[in-house]
């Protein structure tokens, strides 16, 4: 599904990722942990194709296709989704309008019929119910004035609507209270399927109690330093990143 080989990425001339390797199979759930500033969000942006994140070496292959140079909206249409660490506000644009536009843009690209207003509303009703999201949130402008937790939940709603084949969730758990965390985790678990892979970026082992990963990776110094099972997350929770030379960074 996703193959990252010897990836080097620079931002403003500064090398952030320095030869990163990662392989995620279809239907797998991988967690990435690592100290602040180690390049986790950078990795998510470069997978999604953000401008200014230059690949200086190596490559990212998604479903057998090299992503280098591909426009972000094309990646999205091919099934790539990024839940942002800091979701962006779009004043004046109702959440539903935005989601309908996004879904239909993707469907158009794939040569599928667009959903009409009725079909869309019906689908939205199901999704919001599943995720415990109020109708009010759909009418409000995208993320504008949303609380931190609401923004994160809105990201999961978008994922549920767009049904990606690969979702990168960048710290979707941070800022959530216990109840919200459970709802979000449940939402993510419901979306797990044999043909959907997920990359879960998190700082907390807590999330992994709810969403059990197939693999855990430690990102530091621009590389994956260690990979393991769920027990690796426990170990990190205890010892921190000292082993990787980043204690109290």
């Amino acid at each position: 599904m996703l193959e990252i080989k010897n990836l080097h990425v620079s931002v403003d001339g500064k090398e952030i990722l320095k030869g990163l390797n990662l392989s995620v199979g279809a239907g797998e759930m991988h967690a990435i942990m690592g100290p602040n500033g180690s390049g986790k969000s950078t990795l998510s942006y470069v997978i999604a194709g953000r401008e200014g994140y230059d690949i200086t070496g190596g490559r990212i292959v998604f479903q057998g296709e090299d992503l280098t140079g591909m426009e972000p909206e094309v990646r999205a249409a091919k099934g790539l989704f990024l839940a942002f660490q800091y979701p962006v506000e779009i004043p004046g644009v109702p959440n539903t309008t935005f989601l309908k536009e996004a879904l239909n843009a993707i469907r158009r690209y794939r040569g599928e019929d667009e959903l009409d207003a009725m079909q869309f509303v019906k689908m939205m009703r199901e999704k919001t119910k599943e995720l415990g999201i109020s109708d009010d949130m759909l009418k409000r402008a995208v993320n504008a004035g949303f609380s931190g937790g609401e923004k994160k939940r809105n990201e999961i709603l978008q994922m549920a609507v767009l049904k990606p084949t690969l979702a990168v969730l960048d710290e979707t758990d941070s800022g959530l209270d216990i109840d919200a965390l459970k709802i979000v985790a449940e939402g993510v678990n419901k979306l797990r399927s044999p043909d959907r892979s997920m990359l879960l970026i998190t700082h907390y082992q807590r999330l992994l109690d709810y969403i059990v990963p197939d693999k855990v990776h430690v990102l530091a110094h621009g590389k994956i330093q260690r990979s393991g099972g769920k027990e690796l997350a426990m170990e990190l929770e205890e010892k921190g990143y000292a082993e990787f030379g980043e204690a109290a960074a």
Binding site: A48, R50, E73, A76, F84, V88, A102, L162
Partner: peptide
Amino acid sequence: SEDQLFYLRQRGIP
């Protein structure tokens, strides 16, 4: 903002 554009494009909107 570039942030807004990237966010929308990531969701598939040209």
